[in-house]
Design a binder for these strands. Structure first.
Length: 221
DNA sequence: CACCAGGCAAGTA
DNA sequence: TACTTGCATGGT
């Protein structure tokens, strides 16, 4: 990957451009699978900086373990995660997630991750508050399974560069990535992180700065 | 001051 | 099915 040669696969060419421009992203920040899972819920429609504050609160109170979080009243959890915004609903969503792991995987996160990709995704999606992006983020970044994460940035960057249809949906867009990329967890990990990096610099909603974007004319072979 | 950030669910028509 | 709205703090 990223040999410097221009790749004939358009999506891999995008990856090569971004990889050459930005270098390794080292996602996902988080010291444990539990921390990554919690972060995946907390970052819903929320700046990552604020998620880090919420996680720091849990760590400071020595509450970042499955048993602590599982037994903690939802109202108390909400106070710990307050800086991440939407704290009441996110506290309930985290409780829903822990309850599913308790019910279906004996309270062991490792058992969830030992399940098949499709099986674990189904159970994650059944949790109220876990949608496709959150589920795939947990599967890719915590479980290290080949689930390609789609987010608003992915859609914005690729449609703005006219690499995909403007009105595509989550699963169609994800399928395009799965169809054109080798099934490689570290590639999926890095690619998603690189898309976020380029979007933050060049593809903000309000200020589209397209000059000097590393993806200019990537569609031409 | 307005706008946005690594979504999701529920309500409406 | 296709919009719209609530959820909420903190940075620019």
């Amino acid at each position: 990957m990223g040999t410097g040669e221009e790749n004939s696969n358009l999506f891999l060419r995008v990856f090569d451009r971004l990889s050459a421009h930005y270098g390794p992203q080292n996602w996902w920040p988080g010291e444990s699978n539990l921390e990554i899972m919690v972060g995946a819920v907390l970052t819903q429609n929320t700046n990552w900086i604020n998620v880090e504050k919420a996680i720091a609160n849990l760590k400071k109170g020595d509450q970042l373990s499955f048993s602590c979080l599982q037994s903690m009243p939802v109202k108390e959890l909400a106070e710990y995660i307050r800086p991440a915004g939407y704290y009441n609903i996110k506290a309930q969503r985290l409780k829903n997630l822990f309850q599913m792991i308790a019910d279906k995987y004996e309270g062991e996160i490792s058992f969830l991750f030992e399940d098949s990709l499709d099986g674990s995704r189904e159970n994650l999606l059944r949790v109220k508050g876990v949608g496709p992006e959150t589920a795939d983020a947990i599967l890719l970044y915590a479980a290290k399974k080949p689930a390609f994460v789609i987010d608003t940035y992915t859609h914005r960057v690729f449609s703005r560069h006219q690499l995909v249809e403007e009105d595509t949906d989550y699963y169609s867009l994800q399928q395009e990535f799965l169809d054109s990329l080798p099934e490689d967890v570290s590639l999926f990990n890095e690619f998603h992180a690189l898309i976020v990096a380029v979007a933050k610099e060049f593809c903000k909603k309000k200020k589209p700065r397209c000059s000097n974007c590393p993806l200019q004319r990537v569609e031409e072979k």
